[in-house]
Nucleic acid binder design. Structure first.
Length: 430
RNA sequence: GGAGGGUUCGCCUAGUGGCCGAGGGCGGCGGUCUUGAAAACCGCUGUGGCGAGUGAUCGUCACCGUGGGUUCGAAUCCCACACCCUCCGCCA
């Protein structure tokens, strides 16, 4: 969410910057709401002060046995006036809030113009793209042939866009989860959390999923409760600090969690329908950092490094890009994507998104710290995938495939798996 | 799901219509005393919004779980809701 005043101060500049992401800001509408709100505050404050004065005059007059009917009359008038202002204020606040909640974050100047992948700016490439002496299969064919992935039965259970993994496949998911968590907690200094997968509407609003993107979420409405399945651990992790003031000494906060993620993927049917790439449910390790806004850029760089470390550890070739302004998520100022190489597609595909949200989420969720003057001020929030398990597994299977259908896995996973290779028939092999 | 009890300024607690933004204890901070520490004693000590000032700070408004109501006036009375606790039922 934006601060109305800050947005108005930017004026035409805000309009221009939001236009970069295809949002048309109604500056005049915002301005009139804001000034109506400020007028109301001033008027109501004065009336309340007078109301208190009158009340104490009544008391005094009553004690001295004077006539209090005139004072009571005046008090009643004041009350009526306050009621009117409050009523109007309620309306203004709600309109203003809904407007502000629906305005996306201002894009960072470093995000290029444009609204699709072709406008992305490549920052760097790392790792060696493998060459195969045969035509590489995709992870679905590999996994199904080896019996470690079962999409047909998953569909039987839950419909399309779900997966079952089996034997070494399931073990691989578990191993990846542990490897990522170990990297982040032992090497990168994050504190692991275990968090709820169902959260309230307020929590979803704090990180920006609501009110605009309700159709992207799965929702439960049982037993008089209205809860949403989290689409990412970003939601519970960031909102841990909602309505709190974090002591400056505790910054930066660096937290991580492994959770299932649930996404309706409404409107995306027909895209990436095959395999583990786009699922209604997948496991992901998420990193969240909360810091002083001054440090956000440096913190973002750190977190990109932490996501890259996951890929490096697995020997997966990847590239880093900056998303164009029009492609950046609603709440983010600046997003770097990590894209991993998929041999079957002969292309880099998104595997991690690392974003700086500035104070946008902090204002929604009311997360603050204290400035040098001791006064409360908003923090900056950042988050990044590190990494989604399904997509990583897909990349690993394709990357490690041999001509005979067996799959060689990276050394770093052997301690977790107890094997380093999956035979063509799905048998784990040392 | 049923029956009770509770929610006050970091913690514990007092407070049933105005003298209560709110008393006491603990904790914290400062001081006296002491070679030092402890004890004792004295003083200070809730939070947030907005506004002013380079600043220590000052002004102002709000806040006794939340939202409504009654009243000239509500921590206090009424209604609804949320959360916590205890017991019963059910349950991984």
């Amino acid at each position: 969410m934006h601060d109305a005043r800050a947005l108005l101060e930017l004026g035409g500049e805000a309009v221009r910057r939001l236009a970069r992401r295809g949002y048309a800001l109604d500056l005049a509408g915002l301005e009139s709401l804001q000034s109506r709100r400020n007028r109301n505050i001033g008027a109501a404050d004065e009336l309340r002060a007078e109301s208190r004065r009158v009340a104490s005059e009544v008391q005094q007059a009553a004690r001295q046995g004077g006539d209090i009917s005139k004072l009571k009359e005046r008090a009643r008038e004041i009350k009526e006036q306050i009621r009117e202002i409050d009523l109007d204020q309620e309306q203004v606040q709600e309109e203003l809030r809904m407007l502000l909640l629906s305005i996306p974050n201002l894009p960072d100047d470093r995000a290029p113009d444009g609204d699709s992948a072709e406008f992305a700016v490549e920052v760097r490439r790392a790792g060696t793209v493998p060459s195969f002496s045969f035509t590489p299969k995709d992870h679905v064919d590999l996994g199904e042939a080896a019996g470690i992935l079962d999409f047909a039965r998953a569909t039987k259970l839950s419909g399309p866009r779900f997966a079952v993994s089996r034997g070494p496949g399931a073990a691989l998911e578990r191993a990846l989860t542990r490897l990522f968590l170990d990297l982040h907690t032992r090497r990168h200094g994050y504190v692991e959390h275990s968090v709820p997968f169902l959260v309230t509407r307020k929590t979803m609003t704090g990180t920006g999923q609501l009110p605009k993107f309700e159709e992207d979420l799965f929702r439960t409405g049982v037993a008089d409760r209205d809860l949403f399945l989290i689409p990412t651990a970003e939601v519970p992790l960031t909102n841990l600090y909602a309505d709190e003031i974090i002591p400056p000494a505790e910054l930066p906060v660096a937290i991580t969690a492994q959770t299932p993620c649930f996404r309706s993927e409404a409107g995306s049917y027909g895209r990436d329908t095959r395999g583990l790439i786009r699922q209604h449910q997948f496991i992901k390790v998420e990193m969240v950092r909360i810091c002083d806004p001054e440090d956000a850029d440096a913190e973002l760089e750190k977190m990109i490094g932490h996501a890259e470390a996951c890929l490096r550890e697995l020997g997966l070739p990847y590239r880093v890009i900056i998303l164009p302004a029009g492609d950046t998520g609603f709440s983010a100022r600046l997003t770097y994507d990590l894209e991993v190489w998929f041999p079957s597609q002969n292309a880099y595909r998104e595997i991690s998104s690392v974003s700086n949200f500035g104070t946008f989420q902090a204002r929604r969720a009311n997360i603050r710290t204290r400035g040098a003057d001791g006064k409360p001020k908003l923090v900056a929030t950042l988050n990044g995938s590190g990494l989604p398990v399904g997509r990583t597994m897909a990349a690993l299977l394709e990357q490690g495939q041999q001509q005979d259908g067996s799959i060689v896995l990276p050394e770093s996973l052997v301690p977790y798996l107890g094997f380093g290779r999956i035979g063509a028939d799905g048998t784990p092999e040392a």
